[in-house]
């Protein structure tokens, strides 16, 4: 279970939004893919990474 505070989650959310805008519509997919690979590497846990991919896919409308 993550122990991240609400403040940090909010900061992550804001930084991500600003990152997507900074990348621009043309590059947002590449930016997000790079981000996912970097986070996957930082996470150092392939099962947690797979679960995150599944969770992100499951809630796609």
């Amino acid at each position: 279970m993550s122990t991240m505070s609400f403040e940090d989650i909010e900061s992550a959310y804001e930084t991500l939004a600003i990152g997507i805008d900074t990348a621009g519509a043309q590059r947002e997919a590449l930016f997000l893919t790079r981000l996912a690979l970097l986070l996957g590497h930082e996470l150092d846990d392939i099962n947690a990474f797979r679960n995150a991919i599944e969770a992100a896919l499951a809630e796609l409308e």
């Binding site: 997919a29 590449l30 893919t33 790079r34 996912a36 690979l37 970097l38 590497h41």
Partner: peptide
């Protein structure tokens, strides 16, 4: 293609 471009471009620094 996206995953490869992400991996290759990150390889420059990582």
């Amino acid at each position: 293609r996206l995953a490869r471009e992400a991996a290759l471009s990150l390889s420059l620094k990582h």
